[in-house]
């Protein structure tokens, strides 16, 4: 379950962003999960809470949101989503789960077949916001 490694990254990054602020300042962390990486939300959430329990922050501060994956073809300008990228095998999906850039080895533009496209959004895990208490020493 490499979700643990990503959860660890989120918790470490949260602690780094908080720096020396009082841990009680932290109210919420919004984490965006890109559809392409197909993170197991349950494992990821459990890992976040478990890793957080080793730190002086309140439980339940993580809010998980999912972002749909969107691709854009550089050749024919077609945009498409993951549902249209049919025919991926389980092994290919697993490879993309571990390393989202692997998608470029397996997915082609559904309109023109070009390998020249960009993943426009929905890649992997990122932190979009930290909510802190509005008081002196917290902001």
């Amino acid at each position: 379950m490499h979700e643990w490694a990503l959860a660890d990254a989120v918790v470490e990054a949260t602690a780094a962003a908080m720096g020396s602020r009082d841990p009680s300042c932290l109210r919420g962390v919004t984490v965006l999960i890109g559809e392409l990486q197909a993170i197991d939300r349950e494992i990821f959430s459990f890992a976040l809470e478990t890793l957080l329990s080793e730190r002086p922050y309140s439980r339940g501060i993580f809010h998980l949101e999912t972002e749909k994956a969107t691709f854009g073809c550089e050749k024919c300008q077609r945009e498409w989503d993951l549902e249209e990228s049919r025919g991926l095998t389980d092994e290919e999906r697993e490879a993309i789960h571990f390393l989202p850039e692997s998608a470029h080895a397996f997915i082609r533009c559904p309109a023109c077949g070009s390998p020249d496209y960009r993943l426009k959004k929905g890649r992997g895990v990122s932190i979009t916001s930290l909510e802190v208490v509005n008081r002196e020493g917290c902001v």
Partner: peptide
């Protein structure tokens, strides 16, 4: 281990993303 012997066409920012992920 992820792409086998297939070619992997990446742009610069994607190379950085893959390095960081690994």
């Amino acid at each position: 281990p992820f792409t086998g012997e297939r070619g992997l066409l990446l742009r610069g920012a994607e190379v950085s993303d893959a390095i960081l992920e690994l």
